[in-house]
């Protein structure tokens, strides 16, 4: 019998007549209801149109207004699937930093479905890369792990530099002062292409805006982003 990926309790799934008549594929849960409840989905929430964080109004949040003042005329219009709460923090810790690759399955179906909605509208999906050293140790790119059979374009790579400090270890101020880490590594110009950047977490937006600048310079017509958490 299937077990909850997080707590290991046995999963009970009942097959209903409604499902049988719906002719839909059987979707088995990967988490038990208790573990599932700890995450906070943002789909039905009021969020900031710029970064996707939960707030009472649909006006731009302070952080996004600051991005505008810094010269961003078009914001990323980030869509996030979940709020960054304790459960999400623990999830990222286990999946990304401890390196439990199996845990990609917890959000893979949902994340893939969200990305697919862009793919059908001819957006090009560009993942934020992982630097070579991290990839060697971790063994996977945490963003690509969240995708199931979606074609992506690896248009970004890290500049050759030694001793890069990870964003996750920095304070907000340090993050915001980070220099452009990416270079474009595609074959040709992106004339008029719509681009969807994907990443695991939107924290300050610094990394995603750096990526946006590189792609906009190559002629992308519009750059948006989608993240698992905000």
């Amino acid at each position: 019998m299937a077990k909850c990926l997080m707590c290991g309790t046995e999963l009970v799934s009942r097959l209903s007549l409604a499902w049988l008549l719906s002719l839909q594929p059987l979707i088995l849960p990967v988490l038990c209801p208790q573990c599932q409840r700890q995450f906070s989905p943002l789909a039905q929430q009021t969020t900031c149109p710029g970064c996707g964080r939960v707030q009472p109004t649909t006006k731009l949040c302070q952080d996004c207004q600051r991005w505008q003042k810094m010269g961003e005329t078009e914001l990323l219009a980030n869509q996030a699937l979940y709020g960054y709460n304790t459960a999400m923090k623990d999830y990222v810790q286990r999946y990304k930093f401890t390196g439990d690759y199996q845990w990609r399955l917890i959000f893979q179906r949902e994340f893939t479905a969200a990305v697919q909605q862009f793919v059908v509208q001819e957006w090009l999906v560009v993942p934020i890369p992982v630097d070579e050293q991290t990839f060697e140790v971790r063994g996977f790119n945490q963003v690509l792990g969240l995708l199931d059979r979606v074609s992506t374009a690896n248009l970004l790579q890290f500049k050759q530099q030694s001793g890069r400090i990870k964003q996750s270890t920095k304070t907000r101020k340090d993050r915001m002062e980070t220099m452009q880490p990416f270079v474009y590594c595609g074959q040709q110009k992106l004339s008029g292409q719509k681009i969807l950047l994907i990443d695991d977490i939107y924290t300050t937006g610094r990394t995603l805006y750096h990526a946006k600048h590189v792609l906009a310079k190559q002629g992308a017509s519009q750059v948006r982003s989608l993240t698992l958490a905000r």
Partner: peptide, 16 residues
Amino acid sequence: LPNGQYYCPACLLLGR
């Protein structure tokens, strides 16, 4: 793992 290695999910909490 995608880079061709294998990891052990069983004793992960003591460090992968």
